[in-house]
Design a protein around this nucleic acid. Structure first.
Lengths: 155, 155
DNA sequence: GATATTTAAGTGTATATGCTCTTATCATGA
DNA sequence: TCATGATAAGAGCATATACACTTAAATATC
């Protein structure tokens, strides 16, 4: 790349500011790291943190339909659909036609419950480690900001 | 799922606490939402926020090798490798053998720079919207917490 | 009651992510 | 110089993510 082009619109300093400031970049990076930490911690349970989250949500929202569950989880319906399919293949959740036959209802199986129970203490340990690493106060603040961020992007 | 099993290890209330508290879940959810918002904002530029981030990083770290870049970005080397490959296919970055012939050196092409410049104002607008939606003060706090979180998980 | 509209979910396609294993190259020491 | 170990990156595999489009079922409208 030639020198005159390097200065078209932004300098390396501008660029560095973008990089440091970018909400998306920082959030995604943090999410990658935290995901990795939890995945390692949960490995003995055979679940990844995403799967543990889905099982937990399915337990909480027993017999919910896919669309509503996706909405609650803040994820795309089709993403959830595929992720649930994988859990169904492993026998961890049950997917059944609803009364409204367009709907698919989600529930945990016995095995799903067992997997969740096996993973729970591992989850708890890593969660404690992260919270204490960050400090209780900062952690509370961050959780609250993340929720606010979610609300701010609701529309 | 039978009733006696529902009480094995945790109640729905415990489960709700896990869900609300889980650092990984909240971070991933926030990352999904923010990613979506930026992807929509950047659409006219033909870049996704992840790609914009990579171009920016490549610009900042001109001629860096893949492994080091991955380290700086806090992502898996193999992930970065593949993502860069996609940008190379589109002619946005150049991947060249280094002096050490095991290494691959990354640099922006003219087109990559142009794409970045086209995306920058769109990025800026969404960034501003999110920051002001959250409030300058909370945003600063969150950025700092995310950086700390990263450091706490360094090892 | 037949047709049009709305709604729930699935499919096709593409990117993002990271683990494990492999390959190519470099550096080191006998 | 050759064997050995270290290092950089790629390949194979699997999951996570979401957009655009399609399909099937329920609802509304005439």
């Amino acid at each position: 790349m030639s020198d005159e082009n390097k200065c078209c619109l932004f300098s390396p300093e501008d660029c560095a500011r973008i990089s440091r400031a970018c909400v998306a970049f920082q959030l995604r990076r943090a999410a990658r790291k935290v995901t990795k930490a939890f995945d390692e911690a949960l490995r003995p349970s055979g679940l990844k943190i995403t799967q543990f989250s889905l099982l937990t949500a399915s337990f909480l929202q027993e017999n919910q339909n896919v669309g509503r569950l996706a909405e609650l989880l803040g994820m795309d319906r089709t993403t959830l659909s595929r992720n649930l399919k994988l859990l169904e293949n492993r026998g961890l959740v049950k997917l059944e036609e609803g009364e409204d036959r367009r709907e698919v209802r989600v529930s945990l199986t016995e095995e799903g419950l067992e997997a969740m129970e096996k993973a729970a203490p591992l989850w708890h340990q890593m969660q404690k480690q992260i919270v204490s690493g960050l400090g209780e106060f900062r952690w509370e603040a961050m959780m609250s900001e993340l929720r606010l961020l979610g609300k701010a992007l609701k529309k």
